[in-house]
């Protein structure tokens, strides 16, 4: 296992502005959806909001837990692949 070579202050100095911008992008994305006037929340947005809750958790491995939130947890193969694409969130979440 490799130690991170940077101190926490160096990490914040280096990456903070980039991730500040990403949070603003998410906020603007949600605002844009609100302005469209739709009352129904898309399952992908519901999943995204759950991920944002998960970010608030103080525990480690946020990335893994968020990927798991966005995963299909069924075990058996599906009968037929009726599409080729993936949507980024399980339809039931």
């Amino acid at each position: 296992m490799q130690d991170n070579q940077m101190t926490s202050e160096e990490i914040v100095d280096r990456y903070f502005l980039e991730h500040r911008a990403k949070v603003l992008d998410i906020a603007a994305f949600l605002d844009r959806i609100d302005r469209s006037g739709s009352k129904e929340k898309d399952f992908r947005i519901i999943a995204l909001l759950k991920c944002i809750d998960e970010l608030q958790s103080g525990d480690e491995n946020r990335t893994k837990r968020i990927l798991e939130l966005l995963s299909d947890h069924s075990i058996e193969p599906i009968d037929v692949a009726s599409t080729k694409g993936a949507s980024g969130a399980p339809p039931t979440s």
């Binding site: 990927l67 798991e68 966005l70 995963s71 299909d72 947890h73 069924s74 075990i75 193969p77 694409g85 993936a86 949507s87 980024g88 969130a89 399980p90």
Partner: peptide
């Protein structure tokens, strides 16, 4: 391995 929501299940299969 599969994309996005299908990756975890597909990797195990």
């Amino acid at each position: 391995t599969p994309h996005l929501e299908d990756k975890l299940k597909g990797t195990n299969l």
